[in-house]
């Protein structure tokens, strides 16, 4: 398992760079991850990220776009605006979670 240094901290990631340890993430780190992929976080982004974090804690897996839209109320269209082109993977990355494994 690769270890990378973000914000002068050692962070465990998978081969692609997604965080593997839920507890190594905090909001400061989330900001750095977002900057890494060219996203400036707004309150709207944070609402999605906090939903993903909370949902993962109870479900044990990363929410899909469908789940985020249904449960957090952020429309799918808006997710594509907030996290352009590949929202599911980008939200997961910024939230320090694995890529969602569901198909839908």
């Amino acid at each position: 398992m690769p270890v990378t240094t973000i914000n002068s901290r050692d962070i465990h990631v998978d081969d692609e760079g997604f965080l593997t340890e839920y507890d190594e993430w905090d909001e400061e780190l989330g900001k750095v991850l977002a900057t890494n992929i060219g996203i400036d976080l707004t309150d709207e982004h944070w609402a999605v990220i906090r939903f993903l974090r909370d949902d993962y804690k109870t479900q044990g897996e990363t929410a899909t776009i469908r789940r985020v839209t249904t449960l957090s109320g952020v429309p799918t269209k808006q997710l594509f605006v907030l996290f352009p082109k590949k929202p599911a993977k980008k939200m997961a990355y910024v939230a320090g979670l694995p890529k969602p494994h569901g198909c839908v």
Binding site: P2, V3, I6, D15, E16, G17
Partner: peptide, 16 residues
């Protein structure tokens, strides 16, 4: 699993 340690920042390539 082999442990590899890298000190460079690993960022996913979203290819976009």
């Amino acid at each position: 699993m082999t442990d590899t340690t890298t000190r460079t920042s690993v960022v996913p390539n979203f290819d976009d």
